[in-house]
Structure formats: C-alpha cells, structure tokens
Write a protein that binds this DNA or RNA. Structure first.
Lengths: 330, 330
DNA sequence: TCAGTGAATGTTTACGTAAACATTCACTGA
DNA sequence: TCAGTGAATGTTTACGTAAACATTCACTGA
C-alpha cells in the first residue's frame, strides 16, 4: 500500500480510501491511485483488513459431508448468495455425524476466520450438544425443526405434502397411500404427519404407512407390496427416488400409471421429468432456502439479534403425467 | 493473548508458544497457560495469525456451480483432506461458465484469504483466459486435460473405458457398441477414444457411435435405437444415468439384459447397484482425486514448484449382473 | 480584507500475533 | 569456585490496514 501511495504521490490513507470506495477523493487523485494499483499489481491484504476491521467477510457452512442432493443445492445457493453480498464461504465438513464431531466443528469455529455460521444438517445432533459459540457468532440452521432454539430456514414440508395429497383427492381418489422416508428423518416425519392430517381433515382414514429409506431400491421393494393392494389407486411418495422405484414395481406388476395408480413424488429432481411416465411431484426451492439462510445470518450479524424462529419456503406442485382420476368404478 | 499471559503469570510470547505447540515450555507453565486460556475462553485471532505468518491455511476451490455428482464428491473429499492437513476450504462459485466469470474468479483470488487454488471444472474455459495469478499462488486442476499448462489430477478415463470394453470382449462379444456423452465433454471424449482404440487393438471395427447428453432420458432415446440393431449384444455407456435409460429401453423392446444384451456403465453411482439388473460399471475414486488435489497444491506451495503434469487415479471395474456372454450362436 | 467553513488529503496509531533477539538462571566441569 | 552452557522465558518489533484525528487550502461572505 505504501508503494502504491508513493507511486501515486499520495498518502497511504488515500490509497485505502480509494481501495474501499470511500467518498471525499478527487476524481483525478482516484484515477492516479487506480493507475498506480494496476501498475504495481496491488491487491489488498485480506488478513490485515480482517484484523483492522474485526470481521472476515466470510460465512462458515457446517455440513455432514455433502450427502443429499438437497444439501448440495442449498450449499450452492448459499455460496452464490454470499458472493453477491461480498462474503466468502468456508466449508466445515463433519465427517461422522456424531455429537462429538458436531461439537468439535462448533468449537473450531472460534479460531476460524468466520463471522457467521449456517448449519445444513438434520438437527438431532444439535440437541444435546453443549455448544459454546464464540461471542457474537450468529447461527442459522437449514432444514430442521429446531425453531425453538435456533433461527431455522426450511422448506414447507407440511404444505408440500398437503398439496400432494389434496391434488390426488381432488382427482377423485378415495384415499391416498404414503410411501414414507426413514423414521429418523425430520423431513420424512413432517411429510408423513401432513399426509395423515390432510386425510383426517377430509374425513378419510389413512391406509397403513409404508416406509422406505429414500433410495430407489427401497421404493421398488415397497412398491411390490403396494401393487398387491387392489384398492390402492393413489400413492404419495416422500421423495422422487422412491417414486422411481415404485413406478418400476408397478410396471412390473402390470399396474398402469396413471390409469390404474396415480403417483406423486417430492423434490422435483431433474430426472423426474424423464421418468416413465413423467412424475407429478412437489418442487422444493433449494435456491431460496440457501438465499434466506444467508440473508438470515447477515441480518442477525448486523443487528446482533439473538432470536430464533422458523422461516418456511413454499413448495410448488408440478403436475406431470403420473397422476389422473382413479379407474372408473372405484 | 495479553490477558491470558497476565492470568497465567507469563509473557505473551509464552502463550503464543503454547498456543502453537512449540517446544521449550515447561510442563507446568504449559498447564497454567492452558488453564488460563480455558478460563478466559481464549481463541487465537486467525486474522492476526495470517497477517503475521503470511499465510491463511486456507485453500480456494473454484467450481462451476456444484453441478455434477463427481464434482460434488471431489469437493467433499477436498474439504475432508484439507481439514486433515489443517487447512480450511473456501468456495469460489462461478455462476455462469464464461471466460469472463472464470477470469473474474481468478482475479478476485488475490484479495481472498487463500494460499492455493483447486479448480474443479471442464477446462475449456481456462484455455484462452489470460489469468493473472497473484505471485506464489499455486493451482491444481481436477478432471481436465490441461496437463501441459497446469498440474492436473484426473480419473484414468481411458483406462476405465478400456477395462469396460475388454471385459465385454473377454465374455465373447464380437464387438462393443458405445453410448457416448456429449461432444463438448473432455471426459466423454476420452472415454470414446479409448473405446475405439481398444477395439482397434483387438482388430475389431467400431460400430457407429451413439451419443447422449449424460441424462437418463437421452440414454433411453439412444437405447430405443440400439434395440433395433439385431447384432448389438454389448453396450458400453459413458455414464450410469444413460445406462439406466438404456436398460429401460431394452426392457421395453423385449431385449433381456444380460441374456440378449450386456451393458456396462461408468461412475458407479450408488443407485447403480439397485438397477434392474444391477449394473456392471467402472468405479471412479472421487475421494482419491480430491485427496490428490489437496496433496498436490500443498506440496507445490511448500516447494514453490511451478511445474505441471497429470496424475491419473485408477478406476476399478465393478462386475454385477448386467453383463454375460453373448447369446449362443452369436 | 480576512475570519470562517468545509472538502481534500495527511499523520498517528492500534488491531493480535509470532519472529528475532535478549535475558535469566540452574547446572556442569575444570 | 566460577566461567561456560543451554533450556526456559521475556522484550521488542513488524506484518498491512483503516479509524481517529490533524492539517492544508480554496472559497465564501460580511
């Protein structure tokens, strides 16, 4: 910075002013400084900046190693939104999803060059963790139900599930079966609960819940069982992969989709438009979740709020060819 | 640090020594300092450290927004390996894959708190970019063929394709068809070239190349055409998604896999073991690619080497039920 | 004419750390 | 006994920046 100042014939402080876009610098001075910067290939030292300013302009993202598609797309959106706000994103991977590991990630936080944190993870692990956050470190959690202890941004799982079930009921189906996700998953729980609640509201009895583990293979196995139920004309699958397996099982058993059975998925993964038949599904806006996470931490940082609560991102039902009215006479 | 020193009754320098694990501190002094650190919840300021040391202990990863599964798993491995080496990972997303964007990412690098860079991206975009890297900034590129200009770590695409083709020839097939990836992709190019070369070596004529765009849907469409070729008994698909579409097309057309047609994929995505039938495919070791990227930048940083060259990560053929000898009489 | 004003620019200083050098002090061995 | 040695610890200083305060100087208006 001193070299630039010398070459431009000004003081270092003026270089700093130009470098930070502060007002009160003559157009001509500014041009000379910029020229000197280019000449010397000057780049501000971010360590010194951070030290002086007391902030790093960096957000940390704690994730249980990039596992699900949703997490990844949320992370992508976080990185993009953060960049737009002039923040960098540092990854804090947690290899094994244990209390200790999560706890460790949180305590390493203090030494890391990070101003705020976004956690993308099933939140079970945050429960008992006696997390000692560095003072002033703000946290936002994506995709969890810890709204009573953290600021949470989540997809409106319940709303999406409700839309899926209502869509099928609206087509005239007597009831809707559910191919649910694993018991431990909060997202799966909420989708299943909303499915049951929506049937209740309509005065309908929920058929027995069939569970998978999110994988296409588990959807296929569950599908073989569902295909044996003659009165099953509509299935809401808790994600698209399981719906894919279900489609294949129904096809193998000679039950046509959507003529005999209607199927709705959840997620709207890119492939779902190419399934046979193209899948009606609940679109999740991961980009918006990521954006709101960034917005959330930044505003908490700026106002230094300690609050909590949940922001829900609405879903959108995408109607494709896998749903239709039930076969005549049912 | 001063507070800790006062509380422990030592100098700040001794605190620094304990904090960095330097030798020459009595066990008793060390214990007192550690106690004082805990008491005051002291955490070293990473900005000041970076300023003083002249390094950030951070690697930057430039990716064209987290698109493909391979990129994501590579990124995951990079983050994990970096953490093991005491390095953090900062994400530098490039929203649009244009020269300008990539160039921009590279020049922002100078201001970023980053000691080295890993690029995960098709490398077309690096070609013409007049990249002005900050002095001393080392770069490693994953998954590209720019070995003459950068240090590159890549999966052994050619070796994997060769193994796939040889496996099919070894089973007795007269020739092997190829369902290739998009023309612009370097990975697709290398897989297709190796397919052709392996047939050449065996003195066989390569059937016409059928192209998809990596998606299952494109594999399905290509599969419908391949199903019309009565002499097609073995297909090597350039990725597992296209193989999935291919399987479905063959099934629809009544051609049994593996009885009538053998199919090999590439990637070994988790689902491929659950395809119908389970898919023989080429396993890519993304974790190893990521690890080698980190190792590569770090060693270049330490020795300040300016060299380039390519490190290939071997693949492994995973034999499942989608491949078998050709039907009798063929 | 000249005190007063305010924009443009300069000078001093501290952010928290660790390298380089300095000092202390117990112990060794002639 | 005491110079010599080396481990343990302390003091001084600089890393590059930007906030706080200081100075310069052209211009205004009574």
């Amino acid at each position: 910075m001193g070299d630039v100042a010398r070459l431009a014939g000004v003081s270092a402080q003026t270089v700093s002013r130009v470098s930070n876009g502060f007002p009160g610098v003559t157009e001509e001075t500014r041009r000379q400084v910029l020229a000197a910067m280019r000449e010397l290939d000057y780049r501000p030292n971010s360590a010194a900046r951070a030290l002086r300013r007391g902030e790093f302009r960096t957000l940390g993202v704690i994730t249980f190693s990039l596992s699900t598609l949703g997490n990844i797309r949320t992370l992508d959106a976080i990185a993009t939104s953060a960049a737009r706000e002039g923040y960098a994103v540092t990854l804090l991977p947690v290899a094994v999803p244990t209390q200790d590991e999560v706890h460790g990630a949180f305590s390493r936080l203090g030494e890391l060059a990070v101003d705020g944190v976004i956690v993308i993870m099933e939140v079970h692990l945050l429960d008992a963790a006696t997390v000692s956050l560095p003072p002033g470190m703000q946290v936002v959690v994506a995709d969890s139900d810890a709204g009573d202890r953290y600021t949470v941004v989540d997809t409106d799982q319940a709303g999406g599930a409700r839309d899926a079930v209502r869509h099928l009921l609206g087509l005239g189906h007597r009831t809707v079966w559910h191919l649910g996700g694993p018991e431990e998953s909060f997202a799966a729980q909420r989708r299943a609960n909303a499915w049951r609640a929506t049937l209740d509201e309509a005065g309908l009895l929920a058929p027995p819940l069939v569970r998978g583990d999110w994988s296409a293979e588990s959807g296929y196995r569950a599908g073989l069982r569902l295909a044996e139920q003659p009165d099953c004309t509509a299935v809401f699958a808790a994600n698209d992969q399981m719906a894919l397996g279900l489609l294949r099982a129904l096809d193998e058993r000679g039950r046509k989709v959507p003529d005999d059975v209607s199927v709705v998925g959840f997620d709207d993964i890119p492939e779902s438009a190419s399934f046979l038949p193209p899948l009606t599904t609940v679109h999740q806006d991961f980009a918006e979740v990521g954006r709101l996470c960034v917005e959330g931490v930044l505003s908490k940082m700026r106002q230094d709020v300690a609050g909590y609560g949940t922001t829900l991102v609405p879903t959108r039902l995408v109607r494709r060819r896998s749903t239709a009215p039930p076969p005549a006479g049912r």
